[in-house]
Design a protein around this nucleic acid. Structure first.
Lengths: 159, 159
DNA sequence: TATTGTTATACTCTATAACTATA
DNA sequence: TATAGTTATAGAGTATAACAATA
């Protein structure tokens, strides 16, 4: 109340109202995105743990990566990723490819079995989502179409 | 390709194209939402683990709950929640209130310290989000305004 | 000497099984 | 006997510290 009166007084009402709406938008978006992501996680692939699946999906999306690359991307420490990769290798979902020139480096590449696993997992989550989207009004679907692109780019390259 | 030709032949092209777009929308939305949620989790409150914070936020949002209620809501088993609550009690963020009539039941209530912690955590995540939203064009913000409400309701009461 | 990754060890989160207290 | 919750114990995920191999 005080804010709006002040803003009105100083002739910056539009700006101030935007700031207020922005906080509320951030709040609602945080809530909706967090809950939806949680539901999607719950549609998990059986037989593979979330951390392994996340690493696998990352490698599948980026192409062959080193352990170091994966650590940066997944925000974990080297020993953790070393173990995740060992598990994925044991499961036959990825394979190690020694670097031709620098033999310290281990490239990690998705196998065709791993490829199938990632795609099955994605299909499962997307089917869950598609089912809910199908229940919406056409205008709502259109809003989501436009929002999807904005969300994809929203946190791109941010810490 | 085959699908569209077939749809065209049977005169259901519009429906079939929608189905195709729906899968793509689901895919993009899954990607965007998952990544954004991940970034939000990374803006975590220091000194409290994600599982404790999630439980705390749930109690704060719902009011006093039993351990059983919390298990259902957080999708964990009773021993897990029992420990999470014990940790929160030790940290002074929640308190146990014995049920007046059924002494097996333990109600869990947020303390004022817990309240402050939840709100600080939310503010931190929302500030992160608001900062990114502020960099968008006004039309994009408007799309997100409309999308927020749709996302909030999208998975309401679904398994 | 610096970099890449692994092994050793410890702590947290989670689960199942067995238990206690109460209804 | 059934229910609400806790304790005992074990497995997975993660981290830091110390190490090995290579550059």
């Amino acid at each position: 109340m005080t804010l709006i009166s002040y803003a009105n007084y100083t002739g910056r009402m539009q700006e101030t109202r935007s700031a207020v709406d922005l906080a509320e938008l951030a709040s609602r978006l945080r809530f909706g995105v967090t809950r939806l992501a949680r539901k999607l996680r719950q549609q998990a692939e059986p037989g593979i743990t979330p951390s392994c699946l996340a690493a696998l999906a990352t490698i599948e999306a980026h192409g062959p990566m080193t352990i170091g690359d994966l650590c940066v991307h997944e925000q974990v420490q080297p020993p953790t990723m070393s173990r995740v990769v060992a598990t994925l290798v044991d499961a036959g979902l990825v394979e190690r490819v020694p670097d031709a020139v620098d033999r310290r480096i281990a490239w990690v590449r998705v196998t065709s079995e791993g490829e199938r696993t990632v795609q099955r997992s994605r299909r499962r989550k997307e089917a869950y989502l598609a089912k809910r989207i199908r229940a919406l009004e056409p205008e709502q679907v259109e809003v989501l179409e436009r929002a999807a692109g904005i969300l994809e780019r929203l946190v791109e390259g941010s810490p």
